[in-house]
Design a protein around this nucleic acid. Structure first.
Lengths: 214, 214, 214, 214
DNA sequence: AATGAATGAGGTTTCATTCAT
DNA sequence: GATGAATGAAACCTCATTCAT
């Protein structure tokens, strides 16, 4: 357990070890239940050093959120080939997303559960990342509509809601997949892709469902 | 703020006041950040009384989860007319769900965020409720397939995945709607209904999307 | 467990029930670990009634000490026939003592352990009883010396130390006998009687042991 | 009162200061009445440091018991010259015992009163020490019998009862001597030695007292 | 004669954080 | 670059005690 006790590392390396330990601890125990003692011990350093490098528990948590958010968006971006048609791009994005969250369950827990449960400041950090992803998906939907030569002027607000629903479903599925043994990233992506794409396709074909009057 | 200081209430009444205060505090500050002092003060009673009636922080939290879970499932059940066709029943269920979560944001926070972030015991309490809802939705999807005279033998596993995605999307949208000013329960329900229904419809029409080989 | 819940008892009876419960609780759990809640519940009454009758935890404990001390001295006195020779009187006193402490282990625990462990005020209550017993034993020793026509002017201080040692040994043996299954009151009394009587006899025969110079 | 406030001591030293303060407080106020605040203040440190080093009130108390038990048995062992005859060895043992308990009244209170009054776990710690002492005394009695060329096959059970009575008398006398001004360790030892030695002597001379039939 | 409702005060324990080396 | 020593503040929980009926 814990990092091997190696002395005199350069600062950048030590910092990453601390963040590794922090993400693991925050992800598994939660922000408040994770103690700085736990984290320092898991990182293999003394507590004052954690404070020297990361300043405070809040700052440490924020650093975790930022690092994990950056890693997740980078993974999704790296998984998508921009020259492919929209459906393929959505598929690739979902696959990259579920693959990354499955490989970094503690990071995903920090982003999706912990950061949203412990105060506005932390939630705002995640919101930035989420906005980026929702924008990406919104763009994909618009592209898909254009490529299908259908209603390119789908109302923005409608598209935003759909993107929101899609991202929300993805987030829920990621947590569910991590908690459910035997569900692969591919399966999760396929389920959502079926659900979403056919739904969107149907919508674009004009088969929208209309709510009854209130 | 805080309840008006009324003296000598019967136990049952005081207990509800305490649960009200606890749900509000847990929902807004989180399980660990909420102190028993805060809750007692908000309830307008002394701390020892909270312990006398609710026993411990854990038990108090569990009581909150149970009460809110019961209220939510009751609201959804009460909103659905069983004699209507499946699409209308899904609509009514979603509308009732989003209406209730919008009216009780702290309760929803307790159920969806806090209870799942602070230990298996609490999460299990919510899982019971969630299972009930997923079962309800799964039934609706099967009914819809039958009513449309389409593929009544849709594979169970497929249906389960779809129900999971739909419920996950609903949960995410509820949290998002609570955090986004100007989004009504009706709008949230309509967005998800469009997304889901058309998606399911398309799927049933055989227009399933196939993932590329790995 | 606990007294059967009978309503409207005369005060004197209720008070004895409370003292019974208190002695049991204090004896088994100790003064500080025994809560007024425990005692009230075991007595089958509400806490305010305990306060109404016994006034405070301190007063309740004092009342327990007094009752048990009185019972113990009464038992010893009742066991001794004054017309017998000194050795028989000592035997009867010891037998009565060990019999009583074996029958009332909680009372003995209150007197010997609890009362001496929780403040001067309580200890003083027991000291009164102890003084009475030591005086009784001192008298016995003097009588024995007179009956044996030996050194009737044994120095008082010497006799006091011997009586103290004898009583101390009896107290220790009582606790030990209560904690050791299979040791009867008769056996305890016989052991001590052998030890003490032969010792005293030897002393009176002039075979005193002399300490080496310091 | 309280230790002079010296800063930055090595851990081992601070720990002993804490144990000193704890023994004093536990011995004078009792286990339950002694608060960790009291102990920390008397030790001249903050409460968290006490917890950091000694872990909990239970552990602290156990550490006190062990330290004091070790000190007492060491003192007795150091006071006895093994080459002397049995009577001299008993005398030296008693003198060392009463001297130590007189010099460390709080430690003796912890061992004899507090540790036996607050739960089996603590009592067991003392029982180990007591067993060692009883064994030592039992051996002395057997040696004395052999040296006097008298009845070397004195029944074991009888010897055990006598040793128990002797140790019990010593324990009671120690507490009594600490509570009675003007009684020296030498006097206490002499009183008990007279009592015990003559008693044993008389017993060995066949002048045993026989209880009357029941 | 008796009790349900209520609390002030204080207990043990933990934690984020800093100082001095 | 790194740490052993130390603490202020606050958390959960319990208890002896009283009030109003």
């Amino acid at each position: 357990m814990g990092a091997v006790k190696t002395k005199r590392m350069p600062r950048a390396v030590r910092e990453q070890q601390m963040l590794d330990a922090a993400v693991q601890t925050f992800g598994q125990r939660g922000y408040m239940a994770a103690s700085m003692d736990d984290i320092a011990e898991l990182a293999g350093v003394s507590k004052p050093l954690v404070y020297l490098y990361l300043n405070s528990k809040d700052d440490l948590f924020t650093a975790c959120i930022r690092r994990e958010a950056k890693a997740l968006t980078a993974a999704v971006r790296a998984g998508v080939h921009p020259e492919l048609p929209a459906d393929r791009r959505l598929w690739e994005g979902l696959l990259a997303f579920f693959t990354h969250t499955a490989r970094h369950p503690d990071g995903w827990s920090v982003l999706h559960l912990q950061a949203r449960t412990h105060g506005e400041a932390f939630a705002a950090e995640v919101t930035a990342m989420r906005t980026e992803i929702v924008t990406f998906v919104t763009q994909l939907i618009a592209d898909a509509a254009r490529e299908a030569h259908r209603d390119p002027d789908l109302p923005d607000k409608e598209v935003a809601g759909l993107a929101e629903a899609l991202v929300g479903a993805a987030e829920s599925l990621a947590t569910w997949a991590n908690a459910t043994p035997g569900v692969t990233a591919r399966q999760a992506a396929a389920t959502l892709m079926n659900f979403a794409w056919a739904g969107l396709g149907g919508l674009m074909a004009g088969r929208a469902w209309s709510p009854p009057p209130a």
